[in-house]
Amino acid sequence: MIKSIIIAGFGGQGVMLMGKIIAEAAMFEGLNVTWLPSYGPEMRGGTANCTVVIGDEPIGSPVVDFPDVVIAMNIPSMMKFEEVLKKDGTMLINSSVIDREPSRKDIKVSKIDANKIADTIGNSKVLNMVTLGAFAKITGLIKIEAIGKALEETFASKNKKLVDLNLQAVEHGMKSVTD
């Protein structure tokens, strides 16, 4: 099994971190992973995306032509990656920002109202973790325990509260995603 995920959005929506947590959680599940950023000269702003490949066999290419899953956090990202999403692939869209439907009919579409849910949790920044929760739920690729471990690994040295906040956001995302 090899599954590829492209996560795309505006800079500042936390797409790189979302990808990293997915990759790290998959690693804790005992799977092989690669995380590949699109990188540019700008430190903030602009568009950003990363590619995560997860597999139970060795991963060759970290570069993906046709992803199994696209997580689109804004309209340009949805339009750009809709074209290359595999047939029967999954498009997870942030419906707080994306007010329209993908045009393709041969793909599965799931929605998460990420910004709104993040606001109700009380921190707009965790919209990426809300989305990550939705991804975990619909794909079944990573479990909450592994996600918790990945968050621990990433935030624990900075702030234990951050781990809890992000984990809470993930759980909300898992509950709120629509198939």
């Binding site: 990759a23 690693m27 992973v33 690669t34 995380w35 590949l36 950023p37 990188y39 970290p62 570069v63």
Partner: peptide, 10 residues
């Protein structure tokens, strides 16, 4: 290359 430099892997 820049890819091995920038990518993450276990």
């Amino acid at each position: 290359d820049g890819m091995i430099g920038q990518m993450m892997e276990p």
